[in-house]
Design a protein around this nucleic acid. Structure first.
Ligand SMILES: [Zn+2]
Ligand SMILES: [Zn+2]
Ligand SMILES: [Zn+2]
Ligand SMILES: [Zn+2]
Lengths: 127, 127
DNA sequence: TTACATAATGTTATTTTATAACAATAAACT
DNA sequence: AGTTTATTGTTATAAAATAACATTATGTAA
């Protein structure tokens, strides 16, 4: 269990507290009072946090969420469902899916390292 | 079967001829001799082509590839394997995966519309 | 502890990616 | 022909990400 540096902790806290994915510049404007003043400071922290599996990037939104599992730091396999109406993002942790997919990848001939899966549609509330 | 407008055709052609995913500004610089001069012209064409299912966006790379299937225009379900060494991107068309995943999405309670799946690793050549 | 190496931070400037806004044409419809 | 709708052209700007380099902190090993 790795310990976070000052900037990493600040950036992680704000993502972790948020109920929705945060964009890098939103994070920046929210941490300027804490002394983080420029984009590179945010992006560096984001990079490290992703590496550790503490947060994930939602590629289709250029936004970041805290990991809601405990296994992502190992597997690097991520899956999300994204509501196109309310923008809610939920991390899916389903070992069946990840077994199924990693199995598929291996059979396809590639040396598989990780995947990212994003579902789009309407969440329970919005449909 | 929809017919393409002039700009859409120009943009599609260059993506379709390319052996690798193309970025929007690479496309732009390659079509300026054909009269497309500014980013919005490229992005509009890209948007429409995506809508039609003729091309896909590789979200993790901000790059665009021509569809290699025939069914994407209907299903909107896309899957790619991406080599982290040579950057090769291959579109995966596997009806089993797409059934499995869309089934999963439905069961989860969301009204599922589409998904995008990106595998990362090493391709046959690079591993 | 000092010396060295490595990692993290601070800072400025710039690059890359994408969109807003509005005018001008072209295509489709009545 | 006149009206609506889609597409195009153009300028400017916003948003997302990185390059480059100086500084400070942290860890390691003599
Ligand atoms: Zn996770
Ligand atoms: Zn919703
Ligand atoms: Zn396709
Ligand atoms: Zn390869």
């Amino acid at each position: 269990m790795q310990t976070l540096t000052r900037n990493q902790q600040i950036v992680f806290d704000i993502i972790n507290k948020s109920s929705e994915p945060l964009k890098a510049y939103t994070i920046l404007s929210n941490v300027q009072k804490k002394g983080i003043k420029a984009p590179p400071q945010v992006y560096r922290a984001l990079d490290k946090l992703i590496e550790m599996g503490k947060i994930h990037k939602i590629e289709s939104k250029n936004a970041f969420v805290a990991c809601q599992n405990s296994s992502c730091n190992v597997s690097k396999a991520t899956a999300f469902s994204i509501c196109e109406s309310c923008e809610e993002v939920t991390e899916i942790s389903n070992s069946k899916i990840s077994k199924y997919l990693s199995n598929f990848a291996e059979k396809s001939g590639m040396e598989y390292k990780k995947y990212n899966l994003e579902f789009f549609g309407l969440c329970k509330k919005c449909k």
